[in-house]
Design a protein around this nucleic acid. Structure first.
Length: 479
RNA sequence: GGCGCGGUCGCCAAGUGGUAAGGCCGAGGACUGCAAAUCCUCUAUCGUCGGUUCGAUUCCGACCCGCGCCUCCA
């Protein structure tokens, strides 16, 4: 069954198939590398990662391109402030991004083009647009896109040109871009920005003088270079990019190449944090490291960020993180139960059952798989998984039945990018001192010295370790 | 003002024209020296008001409330 996905352009759920017949062309607007990415950024990247996983599991080859925005106001400002070259500065944050991606179990894109590395392509694109009458150079050496020259402008975001013009004053009453008076129209946007003092050494030669590309242009150039100028199948990004970024990408690319830019627009909704808009001034802008420091594993974060509908604003809360933690460990226990039927280890679960190989039949987990195919309904997918867990199927299964269910579960977890058996620190990880205390408590308990046993237990708890007793052994768990 | 999203159990959340998945929390039970962990069981008529329909949470209209975007924020 093919994957169905909501498309912003047509405002409908459409079947997703590679128009070329073979590999699906998937482009995503990547991170601006001027600092650590926050969980809002990752929400978008994670759902894109999930789409790719579902497609591949469904048998569709995907060329997944996600760019690195390393050349814009923020990276330049950041590098100047840090006293580093743009290259060193962005390399540092690109590395950090990659580390976080890995921790979140994200697949590496097929390619990750850099904007700085595509300046010649961007200049060539501008020349083409000028040649076709879609762009013009201003007196100061900047080049602008002539929005009036592209009839379809505003189709994606459904903004009429007339409204755009009146929107040179926004709702707050502030006049936008007061200094850019040399544009023909306030709707026109910069393709090339002439060199300014605050750009430091970050200027490149061009037919219009020194300067740097405008932000929107990089994606048009990188899409063209990654996919040979062909129409791409899916373009992903946060909903905020719909206008103006994607609108401008469409304008630049379609005017330059003369054919459709992209078939399917894949936008994900934003994140709220504890009911408020996420922002630096509110201090509620979390990074993966922030959450780790509070004791939440990357897998718990991933679960939280993908458990809700991607088209729905997600209210990110610590309650939600706790809920995810419990839910995830419940799936883990279910897998353990099945593994006890097949006499296999958790390590073996990850190596054998979790992978991009969908079983022919998902069996009783069929509903969960169908949910993913249906517009990435991750919530329904998880709901269906828990429905199966609740029905306690293990009791009635023999080893081969358990194996089949493990295969289905492993495929679903691969699709969701959730890795089990990696989260909690267990006894094996406890420091020797803690282990000794716990052992002393166990001995006291066996000797029925409950006063001493309980006192040691309180002691351990104070140090952040919970003791769980079983029939003939105990386990430690980090609080 | 324009465009868009949403209001479902305490919290999160799926969903359908025929009387509402799931997770968390909570409660009760089993287990336990007591706990913890685990397991079992339990909790809603879907913002308001109209309309269409044999029947609407699901379709239409109005209204109320929350939120996002409107030139460089995923």
């Amino acid at each position: 069954m093919p994957v169905k996905l909501y498309d912003t352009l047509s405002r409908s759920v459409k079947t997703l198939t590679p128009k070329s017949g073979e590999t699906l062309r998937f482009y995503c607007c990547g991170p601006t590398v001027y600092g650590p990415a926050h969980i809002g950024n990752f929400r978008t990247f994670l759902i894109q990662d999930t789409l790719r996983r579902v497609l591949e599991l469904d048998g569709t080859a995907v060329k997944h391109v996600r760019n690195i925005t390393d050349l814009d106001d923020k990276t330049i400002r950041g590098s100047e402030a840090a006293g580093l070259t743009l290259k060193d500065f962005t390399a540092r944050w690109t590395n950090k991004f990659h580390e976080d991606c890995k921790a979140l179990n994200m697949l590496t894109p097929s390619t990750e083009p850099s904007a700085v590395a595509h300046i010649p392509e961007q200049i060539a694109l501008i020349e083409k647009l000028i040649e076709k009458g879609h762009a013009y150079a201003a007196d100061d050496g900047s080049v602008y896109f002539r929005v009036n020259s592209f009839e379809d402008y505003g189709r994606l975001s459904r903004l009429k040109q007339r409204e755009l013009k009146t929107q040179s004053e926004n709702s707050a009453g502030a006049v936008n871009d007061a200094d850019e008076y040399d544009r023909e129209s306030v709707s026109d946007f910069a393709l090339w920005k002439s060199r300014k003092p605050e750009d430091g050494n970050n200027a490149w030669p061009s037919p219009w003088g020194e300067g740097r590309p405008g932000w929107h242009l990089e994606c048009s150039a990188m899409v063209a270079s990654a996919f040979g100028g062909e129409t791409i199948d899916v373009h992903g990004g946060g909903i905020d990019l719909c206008f103006p970024h994607h609108e401008n990408e469409i304008a630049q690319s379609e005017c330059a190449h003369g054919h459709d830019f992209c078939h399917h627009w894949f936008h994900s909704a934003h994140l709220m944090v504890e009911g408020a808009k996420m922002s630096k001034s509110l201090g509620n802008l979390y990074t993966l490291d922030d959450l780790r420091a509070k004791g939440f594993s990357p897998m718990v974060v991933r679960y939280t960020l993908i458990a809700g509908s991607y088209r729905q604003q997600l209210n990110f809360t610590f309650d939600g993180l706790h809920a995810s933690k419990s839910a995830l460990s419940r799936i883990e226990r279910f897998a353990e139960t099945l593994l006890s039927k097949t006499a296999e280890s958790p390590e073996r679960f990850n190596s054998t059952y979790v992978g991009p190989n969908a079983p022919d039949d998902f069996g009783r987990l069929g509903k969960a798989w169908d949910a993913l195919l249906n517009n990435l309904n991750t919530a329904a997918c998880l709901g269906a998984i828990f429905g199966v867990i609740g029905s306690n199927p293990a009791a009635a299964l023999d080893a081969s039945g358990a194996r089949a269910l493990l295969h289905a579960l492993g495929a679903l977890l691969y699709a969701l990018g959730l890795e089990l058996f990696t989260t909690e620190a267990k006894s094996a990880d406890a420091p020797a001192v803690i282990m000794e205390l716990a052992q002393a408590r166990w001995d006291a308990k066996q000797a029925k010295d409950f006063t001493r046993a309980d006192s040691i237990r309180d002691d351990l708890l104070a140090q952040g370790w919970v003791v769980n007793d079983y029939k003939d052994r105990f386990e430690l768990e980090q609080k």
